[in-house]
């Protein structure tokens, strides 16, 4: 790990960074995101956004935790950024203007959790389809609740045992 990174982050961002199995993690408020990303990308050299995802802590408030992972190709250093958003206002700023890879990953996060990314004009469903109601990775979405697009055929007339169907 890059020397003094934790101290550098604390000093520059005013956060309290800790190490999670060797990877520095910072937890910020949702409103701090643009400034933090600016510092990370332009001053500290974190030029690649690896991942955007979320965790649903059903029962806790704030309910959702949005997690970003960034990477510095210069120092081969990874960093995790976390923030909590409440269920009623599950919105964060989009990183589409900073990193091109944010586009698809934010669409997926919106699909799965319903978290809106302000500034990302394209939040169409990417893994799910138009007409799907709900956000499956939320803990209160029943895993077995299917929403078929095609009406099922009457399987009584399968006709698979010889003869025409």
């Amino acid at each position: 790990m890059r020397d003094g990174l934790v101290e550098l982050l604390d000093g520059r961002l005013g956060t309290t960074a800790w190490l999670s199995h060797g990877m520095p993690v910072i937890e910020i408020g949702a409103g701090q995101l643009p400034e933090v990303v600016r510092v990370l990308r332009d001053e500290l050299g974190f030029d690649m956004l690896l991942d955007v995802t979320a965790v649903d802590w059903l029962g806790r408030t704030p309910r959702f935790e949005v997690v970003w992972h960034v990477f510095s190709t210069r120092d081969c250093q990874r960093l995790r950024i976390k923030t909590r958003v409440p269920e009623e206002a599950s919105e964060v700023d989009s990183l589409v203007g900073w990193y091109g890879s944010a586009a698809f990953m934010e669409r997926e996060c919106h699909d799965m959790f319903g978290i809106r990314f302000r500034g990302n004009a394209d939040l169409r469903p990417i893994l799910l389809y138009e007409g799907f109601v709900g956000h499956p990775l939320r803990k209160d979405y029943d895993k077995h609740h299917e929403q078929p697009l095609v009406p099922y055929r009457d399987t009584a007339d399968r006709g698979t045992q010889g003869g025409p169907r």
Partner: peptide
């Protein structure tokens, strides 16, 4: 990449796979 979140149970709370192919689609 695998981002795993555990609450100490025998079942995971969250398993997220950072898939390179998905990012390359972007």
């Amino acid at each position: 990449g695998f981002y795993l979140v555990s609450t100490g149970e025998g079942q995971p709370w969250r398993v997220h796979c950072r898939a390179p192919s998905f990012v390359h689609m972007g």
